[in-house]
Amino acid sequence: MKLPAPLRVYLLRHAQVALSSLGRLYRAPLASLMTAAVIGIALALPSGLYVLTDNLQRLGSQWDGGANLSLFLRHDVSIEQAEALKAKLDRWPEIERLRLITPQQALAEFRQLSGFGDTLDILEENPLPAVLAVKPAASATQPDTAAALKRRLQALPQVELAQLDLQWVKRFNALVTIVQRAIWVLSALLALAVLLITGNTIRLEIQNRREEIEITKLIGATGAFIRRPFLYSGLWYGFGGALLAALLLALAFLQLNAPVRELAGLYQSSFRLHLLDMGQWLVLLSSGALLGLIGAWIAVGRHLATIEPG
């Protein structure tokens, strides 16, 4: 496809200005790098926290499926009655699987895990109740359906206490939600910081090139022509900052990945740290570039108009 000539010229001119602005930044590498680094850190912070909460949520959702119910049976319920109850509950559609833990089994397990073996011998009778471990069917794992199932089970006469293990998952999710809100606030503040950083950098650049701006205005440059290189500078600063932020994220990921895998291994979990997917990387890079552009736009709008040749 061949573009119409005026559009081609227009795009070519933009490409030239984009390259020459990049070249200008390249000729002052230290100053450019420092500005980009400040932007990079400002972008890496919220992105890093996002990755963190994203992983926490993934972790939470892995356990969400195992939202189990524990039915603590009354002391006067015999083993046979417990077996009968189990057989009855097995037919409930909301229940996928049931496991009866007799008081003896519970005691043995406790003895093994707690290390209080000898102390437990002092007890005259087994204080532990029989427990039915209920794994709800998939239809009953949502917080509200699971709660409804819990209420039905609690109402059974043999049941002393029905405990929904989902509780902590809910609390955990609520906590993550709060942290996510905090990240949004932080992101907004840091985005503002990026705007101010690029805005200020571009303002200084405008002041340094005041003479050049006056001369080009004298020769008949339009506002757009004069604005363009500064806008591209802002864009490059933002984009460079986003690249550095991506680099920082990747480095932090490499640092954390191995220990997390080891820890997950200790818990027999297949959990893996998850960085960003392709779309999220693009969002990071483009939002950096966009913030830089907007910052430059604000500075250009405020300061270019005041420069008039005289």
């Binding site: 003479e211 339009t222 022509f225």
Partner: peptide, 21 residues
Amino acid sequence: KRKIPLVRRKIGMIFQNYRLL
């Protein structure tokens, strides 16, 4: 204001202090 650049392109201006970049 927006037409000013077009007017200036019709004029070649020369200054005492040259005003070069």
